[in-house]
Design a binder for these strands. Structure first.
Length: 328
DNA sequence: CCTTCGTTCCGCCATG
DNA sequence: CACATGGCGGAACGAA
């Protein structure tokens, strides 16, 4: 394979930074590996001064704002006080980076910093649900949507709470390196590739990976039709290609096979049902498209590492009613 | 756990 | 020639 230039990622650490917002994307991207084992991202944490107040602790980093000049992607974590004015030098650096074409993504209430820099003008954006109203009030020209995990405007991205920062990062990995690499990253960080729980919980205005995305419409279709009794023949028919081509394209673009991919969708959906409903296991099996409860159990245990019953029990035990909805 | 039988998928080669 | 597609066959897989 050819050499992929290292993608420079800079995480902006301002005083009052929410540690999780900063750490989660840094961790996810630094754990990303291409198929040849290389990490495609170089992560740096940039701050105005060596010591940054991170609330519970003080964070120390060798990099300053000038790191933003070389950044391909800038991540802006949330601050404990979102409405606190951002230092002018930071705003200037962000605007310059944006003008240069750098990709800029905010986590949680980091969207306030982007808005203050004027980067969200006239755009759709999201932020932590509890702060969405305030963001919309302060910046009337920003279309705030509190109901999605993240919004992708191409160059500018915003995401909801810290957990959604994970979803955003996996989305970036998918955009940059395709579904296969993103799936690996998801596995490495022990999180579902895409949050199911519903339909499209994110807004995406760009095709994920322009030169390698011919399967994308089909992947979305599978996301919506996983519960049907699908065979390779039917999937291929829907995609209007032969089964041979379907298999080949999956291999090339997803790094997987149609059935394995479909099964992953079904298991993810099953996890969600087990977490949020009291449907019996065999009902769950059928709802997510498995023909037999036994095979469902087998695959579930295989992918999740726990059988469906104990998985559900571990969730009931921690008594979080609709955990996903609350966090977003 | 095993067995059976349909399904999947990949190498190979032909075709456009 | 480079490239994408598709048919075929059989080994491996998986549903029940």
């Amino acid at each position: 394979m050819n050499l992929v230039p290292v993608h420079e990622v800079v995480v902006l650490a301002l005083d009052g930074v929410i540690a999780a917002d900063l750490a989660i994307p840094a961790e996810v991207l630094s754990r990303t590996r291409l198929l040849d084992g290389q990490c495609p991202y170089r992560i740096r944490v940039a701050a105005l001064r060596p010591n940054v107040d991170a609330g519970i602790f003080t964070l120390r980093t060798p990099w300053r704002l000038d790191a933003l000049v070389e950044a391909d992607t800038i991540l802006v974590p949330g601050l404990a006080d979102p409405t606190m004015p951002t230092p002018p030098a930071v705003l200037r650096a962000l605007r310059e980076a944006a003008a240069r074409g750098a990709r800029i993504a905010s986590i949680c209430v980091g969207a306030f910093v982007l808005a203050e820099a004027g980067l969200l003008q006239g755009r759709r954006a999201t932020t932590h649900w509890a702060a969405a109203h305030e963001l919309a009030r302060l910046y009337p020209d920003v279309h705030v949507d509190p109901n999605v995990l993240f919004v992708d405007n191409g160059q500018i991205l915003t995401s909801a709470g810290a957990a959604a920062g994970l979803d955003l990062c996996l989305h970036l990995v998918r955009r940059d390196h395709g579904s296969a690499v993103a799936a690996d990253t998801a596995r490495a960080t022990v999180m579902p590739l895409e949050r199911s729980g519903g339909q499209a919980q994110y807004i995406n205005y760009l095709p994920p990976n322009p030169d390698n995305a011919s399967l994308d419409p089909l992947l979305r279709w599978l996301d919506a039709n996983y519960d049907r009794h699908l065979t390779i023949a039917k999937i291929a028919e829907h995609a209007a290609v032969s089964t041979r081509t379907l298999n080949r394209q999956f291999h090339d673009q997803v790094g997987s096979t149609p059935i394995v991919w479909l099964r992953a969708i079904r298991i993810r959906r099953a996890q969600c049902l087990l977490e949020t409903t009291n449907e019996p296991i065999d009902a769950v099996a059928r709802l997510v498209g498995f023909g037999s409860t036994n095979t469902f159990r087998d695959h579930f245990t295989d992918l999740v590492g726990a059988n469906p019953t104990s998985y559900r029990r571990s969730f009931k035990g921690s008594s979080t009613p609709t955990p996903a909805a609350g966090k977003i």
